[in-house]
Design a protein around this nucleic acid. Structure first.
Lengths: 229, 229
DNA sequence: TGGCGTACTGTCAGTTTTTGTCAGCAGTCA
DNA sequence: TGACTGCTGACAAAAACTGACAGTACGCCA
C-alpha cells in the first residue's frame, strides 16, 4: 500500500474513534511501527489535518473531513463557487463564514493565476428578498441536528398561539425568505415544521434523542409523499 | 521537494500552457528526467487528472482544477453541501448537474460511513419561487463568459421594445426568480443588465472581446457604487 | 513522591521506492 | 520520408521510508 493511501486510512481510523486513541493502537491498525506512525501523524499535521496529540492520553481528530487530491471540471468549480456564494449571502452568519472560509481555503491552494479565478468567477448571487428573523439561533439548531440532541423551543404558530415543546431537530430547510426546522415534536407526537422566525425562545439540551437522525429523516421523507388530509 | 508537491506543480505548469507542450519541456520545468515525467503523468491520470497526450504533439490539460489534499471543518462541509444543493435545485440544468457531480465526486472518496453523511446532511433547500424562463441558453452564456467571447442577442426590454445587440458578457447573476447577464453593450456603449427571460434569441460568436473579463468586472463593480441618475 | 502510559525525537542500518539512463516501438505532422 | 513526440521495459544508482532501540518530556493517579 502506498504511503499516501496509508495516510488517508489513518485519518479514517482516527475518525472512527471518538475518544482519544493511543499511537500504538493506530500503528497496529494501519500496520506500521509506532515510530512510523509518529512520522505519519507529523506528515498529516503538515498537510493541514487537525490532529491533537497529548502525552498520556492519545490522539483525537477534530471533526472534519480530509479530502485526497481531487480533480474538478470548470463547471464543477463554478457550481462550487456559486453555491458557496449563495450560502455566504443567504445563510446565517456562522454558516456564511464557513462558506467564505471554504472558498479561501481552496483559493489558498490554487496557484497564483487562479486565485483571482475564484474572486472573479462570473457567477454572482443577486440580492434577494429580506430574510425573516430568527438567525441568531441557527447555529445552535445546526449543532443540535449534527449531534442529535433535543431542543426546547417556545413557538408561536401562524395564528399566534404560543406553545412550549421539546423537539428532535432532524433538518433545517432554507427557503427564499424563511428557514424551517424539521423535527419530531414530543408534544404532538409527530413530525412538525417550525419556522425559525416564529421560535421565540430556544434552549439546547444535552439529551440525545433516542433514534438515529438518518432514520428519522428517511421516515419523514416517506411521510411527506403521502398527501395530507 | 516531495513527489506529491511536484505533481501539483506539474498540473500548474500544464495549466499555464494553452497549446500542447512536449514532455521534454515539462520535464525541464519541473526539474526531472523525461522518463520520470512520463511516470508522473501516469500517476496524475490515475488520480483523475484529465491530461491528453498525443504522439508528435504533446500534452494538454483539459480545463479544470486539481486540488491537493485538503481538510475541511464540519461547518465548511455543511456549507459546501448546502451550496451545492442550492445550485442543484435553483441553477440551470448543466450547472445543477455539475453540482451533483461535485457532491458525488466528494462522496466517492469519503469512507463508507461518511458517504451517507452527504446524502443525509441536515441542511435542505426548500422549494422556491418558480424561475422565469430563459434556462436553455444559460450554458451558452456561461461558456461565453468563461471564454470572453461576444454574444449576439435579441432583447425585449421591460416595455417590450425589441433590440438586437452585440454584448460582451462578463457575469451572470442569480436572483430568486430571474437571472441577469451583466455585459458591456456595444449598442449602448456601456454596461447593461439583461434578464435572461427577456432574451428572445441568442447567438454565440467566436469573436473574443478586446479586454480582459476581470478588468471589465472590476470596472463594472466600481461604476455600480456610483448612484445612478 | 514514584510509577505508568503516552507523545515525541534522534540515530542508524536495512528495505522499498523513486529516479535517471538507455534502448526501442508507435503515432503525428510537414 | 524524417523529425518530433508519446509511451514502455529493464536495470542500477540515489533517495526516501521504515523498524528497532534509546532516550526525554508531559500528564495523571495512587
Amino acid at each position: 500500500m502506498s504511503r499516501a493511501r496509508r495516510l488517508l486510512d489513518l485519518i479514517q481510523v482516527l475518525r472512527r474513534h471518538r475518544r482519544p486513541v493511543a499511537g500504538a493502537v493506530l500503528a497496529e491498525e494501519v500496520g506500521v511501527s509506532l515510530r512510523t506512525l509518529y512520522r505519519d501523524i507529523e506528515t498529516l499535521k503538515a498537510q493541514g489535518a487537525h490532529i491533537d496529540g497529548e502525552a498520556g492520553v492519545g490522539y483525537v481528530l477534530r471533526p472534519g473531513f480530509m479530502l485526497p487530491p481531487l480533480m474538478f471540471s470548470e463547471e464543477e468549480i463554478e457550481a462550487l463557487v456559486l453555491g458557496s456564494r449563495w450560502v455566504s449571502e443567504r445563510a446565517d452568519g456562522p454558516l456564511g463564514k464557513a462558506a467564505r472560509n471554504l472558498l479561501a481555503k481552496i483559493g489558498a491552494v490554487l496557484p497564483g493565476d487562479l486565485k483571482d479565478g475564484i474572486d472573479a468567477s462570473g457567477l454572482l448571487i443577486g440580492p434577494g428578498a429580506p430574510i425573516a428573523a430568527g438567525d441568531a439561533e441557527l447555529g445552535a439548531i445546526r449543532q443540535a441536528i449534527r449531534s442529535e440532541r433535543k431542543l426546547q423551543v417556545a413557538y408561536a404558530d401562524e395564528r399566534g398561539r404560543a406553545t412550549k415543546r421539546t423537539i428532535w431537530p432532524i433538518a433545517l430547510a432554507f427557503y427564499d425568505r424563511v428557514r424551517v426546522v424539521v423535527a419530531w415534536c414530543e408534544l404532538r407526537n409527530g413530525y412538525r415544521h417550525f419556522r425559525t422566525d416564529r421560535i421565540t425562545a430556544l434552549k439546547s439540551t444535552p439529551k440525545r434523542y433516542p433514534r438515529r437522525r438518518i432514520a428519522l429523516l428517511k421516515e419523514w421523507r416517506t411521510l411527506k409523499e403521502i398527501p395530507e388530509q
